[in-house]
Design a protein around this nucleic acid. Structure first.
Lengths: 225, 225
DNA sequence: CGGAATCTTGAGCGGCTTCAAAACCTGTGG
DNA sequence: CCACAGGTTTTGAAGCCGCTCAAGATTCCG
């Protein structure tokens, strides 16, 4: 079957420690859905009735302030999970809105199905808890950075995280499709400051930045700690 | 038995939906420990080998920046839980440091014991996930506030949260034992700004603030949304 | 080629922080 | 009972980091 072949190379922390057979069963309960660029996948405030596993493409998970500004809570890459509230008996609202940034694919489980699976495979619940705790740590880090680091350091941190998420293939030089606007939203700075900083680094040869295209040449130069 | 009597009036989201009998079993696996003011209960970075349930007293959960400033991640009240990483097979490090702010009591489970219990009572694991997701939402809220609201609005939010945590008995006028320093650390502002704002509110009769003593007279006046 | 999105650059400014110094509270021990 | 020491709070003045705003340049794509 096609799905078996495609799952062979696929990894997600949600499925850590689950054997091939069980995976088949778990996948069979999911719907595979294609999403197109700019599509809203879930909306903040709606009940988390689905669990999503991103398989292809990028998704931004964000909230909008009363003033109308977007704050990106998370830049999602293949293997990432969202909608974990769906594992609870009474799913709480989604914390943010998920928007596809490119065409992509997601696996989708309903609350009912994922809860059945979690009962059958306790590892699933454990993985979910692990992922949420990881998210929690990420928030704490970001928060500490926001009140104690400079705009420059925060943007540098974001770049390193993005590179890391891409699964640092041999040493930088991966092209990321991301705008200054989006970078600034991840670093909690203004797009203008982001532009100035990226240019500074570009002049030093640390990065290349062109319209929605970022390449990190010398990640080491961005390490601040 | 003393413990039965004392548990009767006790509630924590960690134990939601668990019947009296099972509670007895769960409690019997815990150690009851007294903590004294200023005692460090867990330290950031150590493996989360224990699950804690606060029964009496207050605890601050915080991190320290490289510059040496403390950032309070959370103000813990009776019923609150920390060290949820202990539920995982390989406990991750504690995200912050927990320090008792007064004499108090905690229940403590070891990883081994709490995992046995979670296997026996799936509700425990579900509650844990629910709590962590709640924490996640709190972080998102705080983060959005930090980048989009004024210092004044953030401090007002903190005051309302503290009041809410105290289980808003009929309408304000509860005395909270908290310093300006601690308030400012929760609101992500400087102690000087906190002092100025609290004085302003005091002049209007909204709050009373004396050395480490806060009373909120008119919570409504603090609502910003 | 036209138009929309993205990025750049400069100048001005503003909300908080920082720093210093003093006043104030509160528990303690002589 | 008083005085002292520690922690807490106040107040003012100065400064700065990064935001805001405006205008234009650039890139991409249909």
């Amino acid at each position: 079957m096609v799905s078996v072949a495609s799952t062979a190379t696929f990894s997600s922390h949600l499925l850590d420690g689950i054997c091939q057979e069980d995976l088949g069963n778990i996948f069979s309960m999911a719907e595979n859905r294609n999403v197109s660029s700019k599509e809203i996948i879930v909306r903040r405030g709606d009940a988390a009735e689905n669990l999503f596993l991103l398989r292809r493409g990028n998704v931004r998970y964000y909230r909008t302030t009363k003033k109308g500004d977007d704050i990106m809570l998370r830049w999602l890459v293949p293997g990432d999970t969202f909608g974990l509230g769906s594992l609870l008996r009474e799913p709480p609202p989604y914390i943010g809105t998920a928007e596809a940034l490119s065409d992509g694919e997601v696996m989708v489980w309903t609350t009912t199905n994922i809860r059945k699976l979690a009962a059958q495979y306790p590892q699933l619940g454990e993985n979910a808890l692990k992922i949420v705790l990881q998210y929690l740590k990420n928030y704490a880090d970001r928060h500490v950075g926001l009140v104690s680091k400079s705009a420059e350091d925060r943007l540098a941190d974001v770049l390193l995280i993005l590179e890391h998420q891409r699964g640092h293939l041999d040493h930088g030089n991966i092209e990321l499709k991301i705008t200054n606007q989006q970078l600034s939203s991840l670093a909690d700075i203004s797009p203008f400051t982001a532009s100035r900083l990226l240019n500074k680094w570009q002049r030093k040869g640390t990065v290349s930045k062109r319209r929605a295209k970022l390449v990190i040449h010398v990640p080491e130069a961005l390490v601040t700690d």
